[in-house]
Design a protein around this nucleic acid. Sequence first.
RNA 1: GUGGGUGUAGCUCAGCUGGUUAGAGCGCCGGAUUGUGGAUCCGGAGGUCGCGGGUUCGAAACCCGUCACUCACCCCA
Length: 420
Amino acid sequence: MMIKAIKGVKDLLPEETPRWRLIEETARRWALCYGFQEIRVPIFETTTLFARSIGATTDIVEKEMYTFADRDGTSLTLRPEGTAGTVRAFIEHNRAADPRPQKYCYLGPMFRHERPQAGRLRQFHQFGVESFGISDPRADVEVMSLLWRLLSDLTLPGLTLEINNLGYAADRAQYAPLLVAFLKGMESRLCGNCQRRIETNPLRVLDCKVPECRQATDDAPRLTDSLSPAARDHFERVTAGLDAIGIPFHLNHRLVRGLDYYCLTAFEVTCSHLGAQNAVGAGGRYDGLVEQLGGAAVPAVGFAVGLERIALMLPQDVPLPTIPRVYVAAFGAQAVDVGFVLLDELRRAGIPADMDFRAASLKAHLRQADRLGVLYTVLLGDDEVAKGSAIIRNMQTKAQEDLALSELPSTLLARLPRTS
RNA sequence: GUGGGUGUAGCUCAGCUGGUUAGAGCGCCGGAUUGUGGAUCCGGAGGUCGCGGGUUCGAAACCCGUCACUCACCCCA
């Protein structure tokens, strides 16, 4: 019986890792450029951290967490998202006491026990940022700007930034009964899911995919009309800020975030070429969360993007960095030994060099050199060894020249173009 | 958790209402070229037809079960 990877996880084979490196490096580069600093937190935490931050009644906590008992019985959970652990670390290390801006970014695997589908895995990867301690709406704008710029830099097609004002918890508490009353009058026109949502998550009805539900809720009371002046003011400054720096966005009064901790600004970047899971990245403000987890009353904004989803939309022809390499084709009784030493000398000189130890004939070596796409091949047979020389062959032009063995590393180093 | 689709060579897929030794393209190996890659030509290797049972003279095909993958719902990045 062959052992296979478990459901919902994926191997990234060497053919795909350059694309992933491009995505990861682009994300990190933009985040650092915006003053965010990388933080690395554990991929598992005590279960209560997630239950308290994400919301005990959300699907994630209720049925999607990978939870298991540690040897002493304490309940541990593989992180389903990155914010909870980052906030925990922020509190635990008393980072609020540091006067510098506390802006973090993270990158890594997350785990949710869901049925896999396009753009959704059980082990998936997110890049995210969290900006702590700044209630100024410019922090919201900064975070959305970073998200937009890094996705644009990756030349992802068909991107849309949608934003909404969720208000404060008190605003939503005031609004919810109005909405529920309206929905109850419409119940017969709603899909089965939405009829259930009236009780469980009425705001979510607004964001239903079913066209009939959207029609039915066109005239529903809007959260906007229930917002406090402070919430309105914050959001106005957010949209003004986005305008000022030229970030295109659409107001979407139906946009609701699933996690309990969001307030005020909520946003989502969707992509048209992505299948059903069309959200690439999403985030918002979560001013109450740090306090809720036992820290000071520290405001915060952040986002997370799904790297699998980015990889799905990343154009096939994006230019990937390539390393110019050299192949050592050593054949013949003495030459194989001399070639092996030469291979090591090249590498020590910083020249990416390779050799297939299985190949015995020059023909077999050249075939491998071709497959590897190297720029130069060093041809080294017993004749050359006797003369203390080697031939370097330019694989594109087929031009060959004789060189002394001793000058090979320096010559090749000079010939190879700088890594692009 | 619910529903649909698909499982045949390393990869992408043909295979008719059940009928001989299960095919193609690409890839791989060898030769034409005994020290020169890609292109061409010639030759070759490679398959428990996902697995288990059933129907039948005969099953890759039909039936039942099962597993895997996949898409979608729910929910979310």
